[in-house]
Write a protein that binds this DNA or RNA. Sequence first.
DNA 1: AGTGTTATCCAAAGCGCTTTCAATTACCGG
DNA 2: CCGGTAATTGAAAGCGCTTTGGATAACACT
Lengths: 344, 344
Amino acid sequence: MNLRDLAVELGLSQTTVSRALNGYPEVSEATRQRVLDAARQHNYRPNTRAKALATGRAMAIGHVIPLSTRTEMVNPVFADFIAGASETYMRHGYDIVLSVIGDDQEDRVYLDMASKRMVDGVIVQSPTVDDPRIALLRKVGLPFVVHGRATDLPDDYSYVDVNNKRAFQRATEFLVDLGHRRIALVNGRERLGFAVRRRTGFEAGLAARGLAPDPALMLTDEMTEGYGYAAMRHLLTQEDPPTACLSASAIIAFGMRRAADEAGVRLGRDFSLITYDDDLSFFRNSGDEAIFTALRSSVRTAGRFAAEQLIDLIGDPGTPRQRLMEAELIVGRSTGPLRHDTRP
Amino acid sequence: MNLRDLAVELGLSQTTVSRALNGYPEVSEATRQRVLDAARQHNYRPNTRAKALATGRAMAIGHVIPLSTRTEMVNPVFADFIAGASETYMRHGYDIVLSVIGDDQEDRVYLDMASKRMVDGVIVQSPTVDDPRIALLRKVGLPFVVHGRATDLPDDYSYVDVNNKRAFQRATEFLVDLGHRRIALVNGRERLGFAVRRRTGFEAGLAARGLAPDPALMLTDEMTEGYGYAAMRHLLTQEDPPTACLSASAIIAFGMRRAADEAGVRLGRDFSLITYDDDLSFFRNSGDEAIFTALRSSVRTAGRFAAEQLIDLIGDPGTPRQRLMEAELIVGRSTGPLRHDTRP
DNA sequence: AGTGTTATCCAAAGCGCTTTCAATTACCGG
DNA sequence: CCGGTAATTGAAAGCGCTTTGGATAACACT
C-alpha cells in the first residue's frame, strides 16, 4: 500500500492525502479524518526512502561505534549511550544508522555517511586528543555532536561531556584527605580525550595537596576486566605499593577487586578504590551501600542530551551546543582511612 | 556532487555513468576508467536513498534491541553480536538500522520497518517461548533470522542458536560427577526461549544421574551483576545450601563471586560454579587458567553467522537457514570436587 | 552495396513521496 | 447578483538514481 493506492482508494489526489497525513492546514477536517482512518485501516506508512528523497531529510542519525583494532573490543558504554539517545530520536521520528568499524577507519565511514546522504547528523564517540573527525565533519558540513571532547583542539564544536578533570581531582583530594599518599591511577588509553582529562584531574588533585605524581603508579590501557586484574596485581607487588587507587571504569574496578580478593586485600580497609562509574544498567554499583566509592555519571543521560542537542543543531545549525555534566562522588564501601598498622 | 553533475562533467549520459559505476558490461573499458577516475576524484558516492528507491532494495538490515521494561536494562551481548554481524554487513555493503525499544513494543517496530520499507531484512533478538514476532514477520513477508529460538513454536524459521540444552546438561553432569548433589540454577528470565532450554538441560542432566531438581534451588531473573549477588546470598543462607551452581551469564557469575567473597566462600573449593559465557570482549573469562569453569560460545560469532544467513536469505528466500552452535565446556578455577569436611 | 551483428551510448520512464502553482468552489459584503 | 477573498483540492514537476527500449556507429559477411 503506497500513497497512490491510498489516494485512488479514497478518490482523492496524492497531494491531498499527503497533506492530510502530514498535518498541513489546507485540507478540511472531514477529509483529513477520512484519510487518517483509511491510512490506519490499511496500516499505511510512507516509504522512508521516498520521503527522504523528496524532502531532502533522511530522518536518521548516524552512530559510529569504534572497535578497538588491538583488542577487538567494543566498549559496553555504547549500548547504554545509544539506549539513552534512542528515546529522544524516537520521539522526534529519527532512526539510527549504526556502523561498527575499526577505530582506524572511522574517518572513512563519516565521509561515506556524508556523501551518501543517508543521515542528517552524526554522533562522534570517544574522541582522541586531536581527533581529525572534527575538522573533517565540519568540512563536509554534516552536523555532529561529540560525546566527550578532544584536548588539543579549540572547543568550538558541539559536545556532551562529563567534567572529568574536576571529578578526578575531587576524588584524588578525597583520598588524600583520608590519609593516603601513594595513590595510583588505572586509566583508559591516553590517546582518548577523556583519559587525558582524568589524568590531568588526578595530577591536579595531588598538586592541590602538595603531592607529586609517581609515574610508576599511573597505568593506562583498554578498559577491560582483565586489565583491571592485571593492573591491581602489578600495583600490589611493587616494593612500595600504593594504598589507594582511582580506576577509570567499573569494569576495571571489578578486575581490581578480583585481584584484591585473591591477594587477601580487602577493599575499603586495606586498600581504597574509587572508580569512575558510567552507571551501566547491567552493572549497577548500588544496593544499600554502593559497592564502590565512585564518580557516577549516567552515560545513558549523556546519550539523551547528545541526541537532543544534535536534533536541535540539525534544525538550526548556528552556534555549537555544549553541555558539561558533573559527576557525583558517591561514597561506598571501597574506601576508608589509611591504616598505619600492617596488613593482616 | 550527484550523478547528473558527474555525467555533465564527463560529457556522458547518466545511464552510461551509472552503468560504468555499477560494473555493467555494455560500456567500454576506456569510458569506465574515465568515469571511475572522475568519481574518485570528486569523492562521488551514490545517494543511498535515491538508489534504494530506484532499485527497491534498501541495502540495510534492521536490528531491534529490546530494553527491559522492568529494569531499563540493555543486555550487553547485543553490542558484541552487532559487532560480529557488522563485519559481514560491511563486506556486502549493508548498513544497520537500529531501534532500541521497550520489550513490550517490539512488534510495532517490526511492523514499522516492514511498511516503511527501510530495511531488507531483520534480526530478531531474545525470542520468548512463543514469540509473536515470528508469525508477524512471516505475515508481512520481511526476511528475518532469529538469534535464539522460541520453544513452543515449530522450528521452521531461520535461526542461529546455541545448543543450550545440551550445554547445560553436560555442565550439570560434570558437577554431579564431581560429587555434587545439591546444585542450583541461577537462570535468566524464563519467558525467554534460551532460559527455558537451559533449565530443561539442567533438569535432564540431573535426571541422567538419577537426581531430582529442587525448585528452591532454581532462580530466575534479569541477568545483572546485582541479581547474581543477591542470588548467591540467598543460596548460601538456605538451611541446606547447594554446593554447586550453574549461572546463565558471566555477569551473573561476577555478582555471585562477589557474594561468595564476602561470605568467605572460595569458588572452586567451597563452592563450584559453572557459568555460561558469551565471550564478551570487555569481560574475557580467560588468562592462564579461566577464572570460571564455563560453557563458552562466542556471541560475536553468532552475530556473524546470523548476518550471513540473513543476507543469504534475502538473496534467495527459500528454505529457512538454521544453525546450531555447540558451547565448549572450559574447565577453569571455579569448580572442584565436593568436599565433605566442614567449611573453613 | 546491402544486411546482420555487435559494441557503445542515450532519452525517458519510473521508484514513492513532497511541494509549487493553479484551479475550483464556497462565502461575504456591497 | 457580482467581484473579491478564503477554503479546498489537484496536476505536475522534481528529489537522484536505475533500467527499458531504442538509436547510432562500426564492422563483418554475403
